Every structure is written in C-alpha cells, then in structure tokens.
Amino acid sequence: MRVVIAEDNVLLSTGLELLLGSKGIDVAAVVPDTPGLMDAVAEHCPDLVIADVRLPPSFRDEGIKAAVSLRRTRLGLPVLVLSQYVEQLYARELLADGSGGVGYLLKDRVSRVGQFIEDIRRVAAGGTVMDPEVIAQLMVGRGNVLDTLTSREREVLSWMAQGLSNTEIGERLTITDNAVHKHIGNIFAKLGLAVTDGGHRRVLAVLAFLDNQ
C-alpha cells in the first residue's frame, strides 16, 4: 500500500511515517500543506491519502477541502482525515459522494496503534470508518427519521458508521449474523433505501445517520 500524508505538525507527521513504515506500509510522501498534497498525489498515485483537516495557511478547512477535491477528480481515491475536534459538517461532506473509502478520526486515535492500522487498511479497501467520539456527538439531539429506529437499530447503525462488517457488529453486540442482517434490513427500510440501491445502501445509511440533526 502506498500512502501520502498531509500534516503540518512535524512531530505527528514523522511519527505517522515511522509507524506506517514499521507495518510494511509505503509512505510515498509527507507534505505540510495542500499544494504539496496535490502535487504528491499527482506524482505518486497513492492507494490512500491521510490528511489533517486543518492545514496552512489559515488552519481552518484547507485539508478537508483538498480531500474532497481529490475525491472528485480521482473518483474513489481513499481518504482518511484526522482532526483534533469533531467537526460535523466535514464528516458529512466526506461521505457525500456515497462511494466509500473514507474515514474521519480524531488524532488521539493514532495512539491506539493496532486499531489505527486496521482503520487505515479498511479505508484503503473501500470501507468507511468514523471515530466513535464523532458518532457519539452526532447522536446528540438526533431527530426526524432516525427517531423511528429502535435502540438496537441505532446501535447497529452506529457500528456501521464505524465501518464494521455484519460479522464484526454481531461480535460487538453478541448477536448472530442473521440478527444483524435483520436489523440492517429494518434500518434500510426505515431510511427509505430501496433494494435497487445495491451495495451503496450501507454508505447511504451512514450518510443519513450523519445528515439528520
């Protein structure tokens, strides 16, 4: 796997480069800003981009804007963004194209090395990974269609938003695969996601989860 990292904090970027290298992941480039990110992606054609939400010069939203732009010009490019805080708008915007291969993690998640590497591989493979803290904050004050979900269905949807498969969700909740499948079917039905939506229904459900507040 070839990765490009966009992070202006030298300590964090160096740590990420060393960590990924120790796990057999090739870090093709480490850049401190969005122009460098665009150039590095064009040069190296990475399998995954890891970017800070806030990059120079304004440290507001340059990183996330660059990530969204890259996914528009390079359809399906897996992107994992890191942030110090939960920023709900950015979480929804990343998922807006419905194609998967996206992640939104808080930076303290990096310290959980095993889980972080698993998240990276999941996003690179086309999955969706959301930080549990992001999910927890997005659940507060939730309304509209999500109010029709049972507490168990909301649990299942929360785990889906973190990128877990049916089997992994079943293990977390100590229920069978068939039970998970049934809950997910109910979620799809309540969110109005028809069978014809095919494989994207999972991502669309997560998008609905993030977009109803």
Rank of each mutant, 00 (worst) to 15 (best):
M1H: 13
M1T: 12
R2Q: 07
V3F: 03
E7K: 04
D8A: 06
L11V: 12
S13T: 11
E17Y: 06
S22K: 03
D26I: 14
V30C: 07
V30F: 05
P35W: 01
G36K: 06
G36E: 02
D39H: 12
A40S: 07
V41Y: 02
A42M: 14
A42L: 14
A42Q: 14
E43L: 12
H44V: 09
H44T: 03
H44C: 04
C45H: 15
L48K: 00
V49A: 01
I50F: 01
D52Y: 02
V53C: 04
P56R: 11
P57E: 07
S58C: 11
R60Y: 06
R60F: 10
R60G: 12
D61A: 15
G63T: 09
G63L: 04
S69A: 14
S69K: 14
R71N: 03
R71M: 07
R72P: 11
R72M: 12
R72V: 08
R72G: 09
L77K: 06
V79C: 07
L80I: 14
L80A: 13
L82P: 03
L82I: 11
V86N: 10
R92A: 15
L94P: 06
L94N: 07
L95F: 11
D97A: 08
G98Y: 03
G100K: 06
G101H: 01
V102G: 00
V102N: 03
L106G: 05
K107L: 09
V110S: 04
V113K: 04
Q115F: 09
E118M: 06
R121V: 02
A124R: 01
V129T: 00
D131K: 00
P132E: 05
P132F: 09
V134W: 00
A136S: 15
V140T: 10
G141D: 09
G141P: 02
R142H: 10
G143H: 13
T148A: 11
T148P: 00
T150W: 12
T150F: 12
R154Y: 15
V156A: 07
V156R: 05
L157A: 15
W159T: 00
M160K: 04
M160W: 07
L164H: 06
S165I: 12
N166H: 14
N166C: 14
E168D: 15
E168T: 15
E168M: 15
E171T: 03
E171R: 05
R172N: 10
L173H: 03
T174F: 15
T174K: 08
T174D: 13
I175D: 03
T176Y: 08
N178Q: 14
V180R: 00
K182S: 08
K182A: 10
K182T: 10
N186I: 07
L191G: 08
L193E: 13
V195C: 01
G198C: 02
G199C: 05
H200D: 11
R202C: 05
L204S: 09
L204C: 13
L204G: 10
L207C: 03
A208M: 05
A208I: 05
A208N: 01
L210T: 01
L210P: 01
D211Q: 00
D211I: 03
Q213S: 06
Q213F: 02
